[in-house]
Amino acid sequence: MEIVEHLMYTKEHEWVLVDDDIATIGITDYAQSSLGDITFIELPSVDDEAEQFGEIVSVESVKAASDIFSPISGRVIEINTELETDPALINKSPYEKGWLAKIEIADKEELSNLMTAEEYENFLESSG
């Protein structure tokens, strides 16, 4: 499973890219592989308030529906609308074209609740 070095991760297999006050969020390669072919996505609206570890996106694969949780609190400032017509982008490119939303970070302290790439790799190994 691909893990990207400069991102931070949650136990629910979401990633976050921090660029100053803006966080770009998505799901990991492990998550997209477990979900299988993603067929539908319900993104938040711009200006929605995200809460750390709160539900932010719902996705459906051929077989099941799942919730995705926000790695960070803050206001949604942009969403990846391309996913609405082509949700399979998440499967093809989970760390780049498959990004979900950009969030204006409310509290940088929350980043300490996330895992580094190395910690996430260990977490994946230990959870088998």
Binding site: T39, F40, E60, V62, A65
Partner: peptide, 11 residues
């Protein structure tokens, strides 16, 4: 039989 108005699937 029924067809969803969008990509959302019934379960």
């Amino acid at each position: 039989g029924f067809v969803s108005d969008n990509r959302r699937s019934p379960r």
